[in-house]
Every structure is written in structure tokens, then in C-alpha cells.
């Protein structure tokens, strides 16, 4: 790891000040991506601003069907929150399968959405749930927030403070894990809410998370796995790498969507 300077602010406002002052500063949430990237020297920030001790970023609020999750909430906390489990079980389920137990004790939802790894799980949930990403400056619709591979709409001195969404009547998430890295080779989040059916795919798109119109159309007719029999998804704009071809991933989208729908109806 290259040399860096560590900061521990107590408020978001102080974090922003420190970030602005830094030459090439980075926000450090749970650090489960950033620290490994720094160890391999893929990232070399002059300063790291630790968000883990900022109280205003923590906690889950559930009021009726409205859910707000503070950016500093860990995956383990999302996975085990009883109120959230009652209104949106799939979010807990999703969080309980990110990385491993040790990663889930540190990694946060804010860090995950801000990093926008193309194989991360949360972006699919955010887009399918029509979630809103809150920052210290504004609110951004999830679909506009995730702009490409590791790219988001965040400006340099902008900090994700929370995510919010209305729990849909039904939702489910299933992923096919890469056997070695365990990251989603394709993950599909399906949601049936008052705005109809929304389906978002992670791990497969060559530009990050996306909505699958083909799956949405089929599930809008009938929200059942059988509605996806014979449905095909185009392999255009899907990733092709040593793990799977674009065609293989296209098939995985349908298979994961079928499983996610069954889970949602479960």
C-alpha cells in the first residue's frame, strides 16, 4: 500500500471539508473494496476519510412500507433487521449473501452503491425497487445514479447519506455466483409494486446494472415463473469474459429471473 493520511470525522459536513482539502482523497466506508484495492496499489488515495464513526449515517427506519437505510449501515445490519424483514424480506436475504460474514460486518450499503461494482448486488435492488439515493446535496433516482462500470452520478465532494424506497407487494433476488470469486455472474432482482413490475440485472451488463425490458414485459402479463417459459433475452450489451460468454449470461438472466420470481411469490 502506498502512503496515505487517515481522517476520522464525526459529521458528514466535516467529511466533506476533509475531502475537499485533500489532494486526492477517498471516502472510506467499510473499506472492503477500497482497502484491498489500496493493498494491491490499484488505488492510491492521498487521504482516506473514514465514515464509519458518523452517527447520522447509521440505522434503518421503517414506517409502514417506507424504508430508509442509512449509508453507513452494514450488510450484516441490513440482513438481520427485523422490521425490514417484515416489509421487504428480499433486501435482508440479498444482504445476507454479500461476500462472507466478516465482510458483512464491515461493508456498508452506502459504500456498495457509491462504488457501483458491476457485479455488486445492491445496485440491482435499488434499480428494481425504484429507490432514491440521498446525498449531502440532493436526491437521485437509482436509475439515474448508476451510470456505468464503477461510475455513478456522484460529484467529487458528494457523499451518499442514505437510500430509501417503498417496499413493493412482492420482490425477490437470485444470483448465480462465480464459483471462485463468489461475485454475481448474473443477479436478478424482480419487484412487483404499485408502478408495475420492475426487473434489474447485475453482473451481466457490460455497462453495469440495467433493467430487462423483456423480463418485465413477460412478468407484467403474469407474475409467475411460468411466464418466462420460452422468453429470450438478447445477448447484446452483455459482458463476455473468461467466466461466461454474453450468450451464457443472457440465459442466466432468464434462469435467475425465474428463480427470483418464485422466491418473490414464495
Amino acid at each position: 500500500m502506498y502512503s496515505t493520511t487517515y481522517h476520522r470525522p464525526a459529521t458528514v459536513a466535516d467529511a466533506v471539508k476533509l475531502l475537499k482539502k485533500a489532494d486526492d482523497g477517498k471516502l472510506l466506508a467499510g473499506g472492503q473494496t477500497l482497502i484491498p484495492a489500496m493493498k494491491t496499489r490499484l488505488a492510491a488515495p492521498s487521504d482516506v476519510v473514514d465514515l464509519r464513526h458518523i452517527k447520522e449515517l447509521k440505522g434503518i427506519k421503517v414506517s409502514g412500507k417506507n424504508v430508509t437505510i442509512g449509508a453507513g449501515t452494514t450488510h450484516a445490519e441490513v440482513a438481520s433487521n427485523e422490521k425490514l424483514m417484515k416489509v421487504c424480506h428480499s433486501m435482508c436475504e440479498l444482504a445476507s449473501h454479500i461476500g462472507d460474514p466478516h465482510v458483512r460486518h464491515m461493508g456498508t450499503i452506502g459504500g456498495s452503491v457509491a462504488n457501483n461494482d458491476p457485479a455488486a448486488d445492491y445496485p440491482a435492488a435499488m434499480v428494481a425497487l425504484g429507490a432514491t439515493i440521498h446525498t449531502n446535496k440532493r436526491e437521485i433516482a437509482a436509475e439515474k445514479f448508476f451510470t456505468g462500470l464503477f461510475e455513478t452520478a456522484l460529484k467529487d465532494d458528494e457523499v451518499v447519506t442514505a437510500v430509501s424506497f417503498t417496499a413493493p407487494a412482492k420482490c425477490g433476488y437470485e444470483k448465480f455466483r462465480n464459483p471462485a470469486s463468489r461475485y454475481a455472474m448474473t443477479g436478478v432482482f424482480v419487484a412487483k409494486g404499485k408502478d408495475g413490475v420492475r426487473v434489474a440485472v447485475t453482473g451481466a451488463g457490460d455497462d453495469g446494472v440495467f433493467r430487462s425490458k423483456e423480463i418485465e414485459a413477460a412478468l407484467s402479463k403474469k407474475f409467475d415463473a411460468s411466464a418466462l417459459d420460452g422468453v429470450q433475452v438478447s445477448s447484446r450489451n452483455l459482458m463476455s469474459d473468461i467466466h461466461a460468454s454474453a450468450e451464457y449470461r443472457a440465459n442466466l438472466v432468464v434462469v435467475m429471473a425465474r428463480r427470483a420470481t418464485t422466491a418473490a411469490n414464495g
Partner: peptide, 19 residues
């Protein structure tokens, strides 16, 4: 490298001592 920090198992190779 797993240790417990404030009662939770974490990877001590993925956390700065300062953290």
C-alpha cells in the same frame, strides 16, 4: 487474519490499524 473488533469477526488485513 480474522479477529473480533468490538465483538464482530472482521478481516484484520482489510482494516487499517487507525480504523
Amino acid at each position: 487474519c480474522v479477529v473480533h473488533v468490538d465483538g464482530k469477526a472482521v478481516k484484520s488485513c482489510t482494516m487499517l490499524a487507525a480504523q
